[in-house]
């Protein structure tokens, strides 16, 4: 394991040098306690997930977060509804260029403010959300304001396959799924 040029004993090495190396080799380092690794992994899972959500929010919402806005969905349509917004019958679509990031501003209107809603964005293979490489499903909890809510999503196409971006909004026992068709040209 040791490097030849520092491990070999030269004629100038004194007994003290050799003893120091022997002491260093045996220098004790306390090990972790039996439960430390498991606890550390558990904490990392919780804290890592929290930081990922925070990073997403900071990336996606920017100054809107600072203004206290919690925002939302889909495709440039303004829909006034009593509770959850209605999923539009026609599927809006965009065309992207391969490997060129594109920010899609989703505009969504809600007739009432909604707290503790859960948004789940599901991406097709080959489409990624900036800051979440390799992740197909990203979910977080947020609130909707009454009126227009905006959500910018920076998408990147990594394959020409395209597909549908799904945004599922859940609040209490209700849910709606919105779709955005993505073609890669």
């Amino acid at each position: 394991m040791r490097d030849e040029n520092t491990q070999s004993t030269s004629v100038q090495d004194s007994d003290e040098d050799l003893e120091i190396r022997a002491l260093l080799k045996d220098y004790p380092v306390p090990g972790a306690t039996a439960t430390f690794y498991d606890q550390a992994l558990l904490r990392a899972t919780h804290e890592g997930a929290r930081r990922q959500r925070k990073r997403w929010l900071l990336t996606g919402f920017g100054s809107a977060i600072a203004a206290g806005m919690a925002l939302w969905i889909m495709g440039g349509f303004l829909l006034a509804t009593p509770d959850l917004p209605i999923a539009e019958p026609g599927i809006p679509g965009i065309t992207m260029t391969l490997e060129a990031p594109r920010t899609v501003n989703f505009v969504f209107a809600s007739a009432t403010a909604l707290d503790s809603a859960v948004l789940t964005v599901t991406l097709p293979d080959g489409i990624e959300l900036a800051g979440f490489p390799g992740q197909r499903v990203i979910a977080w909890q947020t609130s909707l304001n009454e009126g227009k809510n905006y959500l910018p999503l920076e998408l990147i196409a990594l394959s020409p396959a395209g597909g549908e971006v799904l945004a599922r909004l859940e609040h209490k026992d209700r849910d709606r799924t919105f779709r955005l068709r993505v073609e890669v040209g």
């Binding site: 972790a32 550390a40 992994l41 904490r43 990392a44 899972t45 804290e47 890592g48 997930a49 930081r51 990922q52 990073r55």
Partner: peptide, 10 residues
């Protein structure tokens, strides 16, 4: 060590 695991999770 804990901070490393969190970074690795992300």
């Amino acid at each position: 060590f804990q901070e490393l695991l969190i970074k690795a999770y992300v």
